[in-house]
Design a protein around this nucleic acid. Structure first.
Lengths: 248, 248
DNA sequence: ACGGTCGTCGCACAGTGTTCGCAAGCCGTA
DNA sequence: TACGGCTTGCGAACACTGTGCGACGACCGT
């Protein structure tokens, strides 16, 4: 036995792992465990090794089901997208109500998983993920149902989604910082008040704004602001594309 | 001399580095070199060691000027923000023209540095960076000048910025993929056409849309789409906040 | 009973961000 | 001029990352 180096001191010390002690890995399993881990500990805590550990698996066992960490993240993003409520065309309340619900649902999903915004910049919107596709088709149907051209519906969809993603990006970034700080929202805001005051020193409008907003950091205000902006966007869409009007 | 281990074989082999052979590092220098590196090679290529090398400096020399890689990125983000054209209040063409210019300029800056969108999710919009502050003040001034309440101006600003960031996120992600692929835009789009077709199989609207858009992936189309959406948003703002109207 | 295939994983590699302590230049003071 | 402190640069080291490779075990079809 010319083996240059025995990996184990004796045959009897060999692992001998009890065969199938764990249900075999699957892509779904991996993706949803990754989602758990991300929600629990944030984007920095997601490493293949930790994920493996959480699955009672080796560090590299996931690579048979997923080619990349990046690919894994794309899958997770689509999974999150799957949490968004699918709008139904023909809602008697009209497209505005349906789209409003959709936008709120999407923002809620993004904020439930705030780490996601640091992934969107690389995954885009998981271009062809099944959930993304289903959602988009449904929203297009809503618009079309009420007289939008398909092209107009597409533009409208993109505009709404862009708005939602934009708002959520800032909000999620804020929430992440907040969570990392471990403090309450008011404490945290208070703690960086001096810096804000200094930064706004030469800018009267910002000073006034900050002073006015000083005590109203709350999720309720954010909800209202989001909805206000959203209604603006919808106004614009209505004016431009709605049946009575005309697609540019 | 009980030194357990001589770091150099002899005193004479010691570095004896020619004192100040390099202009000393400064924060500005570091930030703008980081920006260069990011533009040249993308977000994954930015490591402290590479950055150090590009500065003819050691791997850890930057830490006296910048506490963190994260902090460095915040600084870089603000730097990019500084490229955005500052609007001037009182433009005779009115707030729509000014804000339109501003939005286009901001999108252009983001797309000139597409890696930035993968950082926005963590940096937010570099909350208190000096350039961000200056920009925001200026835009608020534009709105206020034409009769918006300060609160309305704030909402309007946030809405516009959200839209710009949202659109740019998708676009930049696409551009990054494209660049990584090394192919031309048409080739690239063509290469993932089969996948798109398969993904859209059950969704007639998406199929139709994809088919229609198949040959028109170009930056001109994207510009138009962006502007169309932007005008929608501005319509909405006008209807809701402009002087004749009223802040909700 | 047995070859082939497939899922699993230990090891290893090249890299990462960051800490620590040392060295060397610079300043103000004695 | 001499000397102490302070700031700046940096090499080594640590803990940890994503991932390729090769071996090994368990399973399936014959």
């Amino acid at each position: 036995m010319p083996a240059d180096q025995q990996p184990y001191p004796s045959v009897w010390a060999r692992p001998q792992r009890t065969r199938r002690e764990q249900p075999p890995l699957s892509r779904e399993q991996i993706v949803s465990t990754a989602l758990e881990l991300l929600d629990a500990e944030g984007i920095d805590a997601l490493s293949m090794r930790k994920l493996g550990a959480r699955l009672n698996a080796g560090a590299t066992s996931m690579y048979t089901h997923v080619t990349n960490k990046d690919e894994l993240l794309e899958l997770v993003v689509d999974q999150v997208y799957g949490e968004v409520e699918v709008p139904v065309a023909g809602d008697p309340a009209g497209w505005r109500a349906a789209v409003t619900r959709y936008a709120h649902s999407m923002r809620a999903a993004l904020l439930r998983h705030p780490w996601i915004v640091s992934v969107l910049g690389e995954a885009g919107v998981a271009y062809l993920g099944p959930n993304v596709m289903r959602q988009n088709e449904a929203v297009l149907a809503v618009f079309e149902q009420e007289g939008f051209t398909l092209a107009a519906a597409d533009r409208a969809l993109n505009t709404v989604v862009a708005y939602v993603i934009g708002v959520s990006t800032s909000e999620a970034a804020w929430l992440t910082r907040l969570a990392r700080s471990g403090r309450s929202e008011q404490e945290w805001a208070e703690s960086l008040w001096p810096a804000a005051e200094r930064a706004a020193q030469d800018y009267p409008r910002l000073r006034k704004l900050y002073a006015a907003q000083r005590d109203e950091h709350s999720s309720a205000t954010r909800d209202d602001d989001f909805d206000a902006g959203l209604q603006c966007v919808l106004d614009g869409l209505a004016a431009r594309f709605a049946p009575a009007g005309d697609a540019s």
